[in-house]
Write a protein that binds this DNA or RNA. Structure first.
Lengths: 227, 227
DNA sequence: CTGTATCCGGATCGATACTG
DNA sequence: CAGTATCGATCCGGATACAG
């Protein structure tokens, strides 16, 4: 047993939550990701076997439950129980502290553009999107230049690693580290455009609306992600 | 490196705080324990070497600092930095969640009476004590019967494993598991006396005051620990 | 008494490969 | 899509020894 053996609420909580990856899995579940492979995408360095173990442990601890949708083709889904949902204040406290005391500029190992795109995909506020589908291309230049595409529609948001072929409505061009900092609100949207060389090109109707399409689900108030 | 490699405030916070024992060390520091051996007493299962490692890491992470009191004989003291002090809301969130969702009755391995006595010693509100020294003897019966003594004075509170020899002013008799639950406020002081066989004997002036001598440092409001 | 360093067996983690 | 299996590297727990 890897337990603390103390009759103390904090120690008891850490018995359940203290294992590596556990709280990051909860964070992903709070963001609405539920499938095994979705979780894996959000936790790039986790071994599959460890993810499977953690999910089993978390189920046993009563913070998540597994649901089998036999009817639909995408079968298994993990959901937070009430106990799991009530971890949100804890995750917010962690995030607040991390922002204040552990959030210097990104280091090279953290500049994984696919993870950034995945985060953005998951934070799209579909209710803010225009009626017709929008394709946004992101060109990131950093160590090397890479491109990704987001196909934004109310019914579904898809992240593509190759041009989906519908034509480009919005072209975002940015330094990768800069865009990470923008996404994390370390710099404002206006400063990103004015001072940090981020470009958002397309017809004005779309580029004006663009910064309002992304949200910040763990923030207390549902503010625009970028402003 | 045992880092998550994500540019995310939560992941960054967990890079620093996620190692085993780290948050429990912070908890002890928040309770005012500062010496190496005090921390060791509050973390009964931690290897000395691991405690030394963690303190070094925490120092490097900037959440604690080491102070050498060359003048006094008890040399080194560890203190929380501002970053460390601001972990208090996080620890409180952990405690709140743990109380709500992970705080069933104690299991036998958790019934360490010395740890309980140590917690009580550390939570004495010296300002509530009477002017003259009080000796309280605790007789715990559980798997076996054990006794401890608390010498309570404004200037100093001492935990003894043998009778200090000043005479006994207050005698507390209780089942060990029951007293743990009382200490953690899972049962009220009144119920402990009326329903759970806890006895507090001595002259009325002292036994009436007794439950107000202990505090709950992490609680938001400085309420009496037991009522 | 306080604090640190070292050693070792076992548990956990990380990376890769493989399966239904 | 949703996992298992395997294996070397790392970390943890416990004991012991050592220095101011």
């Amino acid at each position: 047993m890897s337990k603390y053996g103390q009759y103390c609420p904090v120690a008891r909580a850490l018995d359940i939550l203290g294992d590596r990856w556990t709280l990051l899995i909860v964070l992903n579940l709070l963001h609405g990701l539920g499938h095994f492979n979705e979780l894996e995408r959000g936790l790039p360095r986790i071994p599959k076997s460890l993810l499977a173990n953690r999910l089993r442990q978390m189920q046993q601890a009563g913070i998540i439950e597994k649901r089998h949708n036999d009817s639909g083709r995408s079968s298994t889904e993990y959901h937070l129980t009430q106990a799991g949902k009530e971890l949100k204040p804890l995750l917010m406290a962690l995030g607040t502290w991390g922002e204040a005391w552990a959030f210097s500029d990104p280091v090279p190992e953290e500049l994984n553009p696919i993870l950034l795109m995945w985060w953005m995909r998951n934070q799209v506020r579909v209710d803010q999107l225009p009626d017709s589908r929008v394709v946004a291309q992101y060109d990131f230049h950093g160590a090397e230049t890479v491109s990704f595409w987001l196909v934004l529609a109310r019914a579904d948001v898809t992240l593509c690693l190759t041009d989906p072929g519908y034509g480009i409505d919005i072209l975002v061009t940015a330094d990768l580290a800069t865009y990470f900092k923008l996404w994390r609100q370390r710099i404002s949207y206006q400063d990103a455009l004015d001072l940090y060389g981020v470009r958002v090109d397309g017809i004005p109707r779309l580029t004006r609306a663009f910064p309002h399409w992304f949200g910040w689900s763990l923030a207390a108030a549902p503010e625009p992600a970028m402003r």
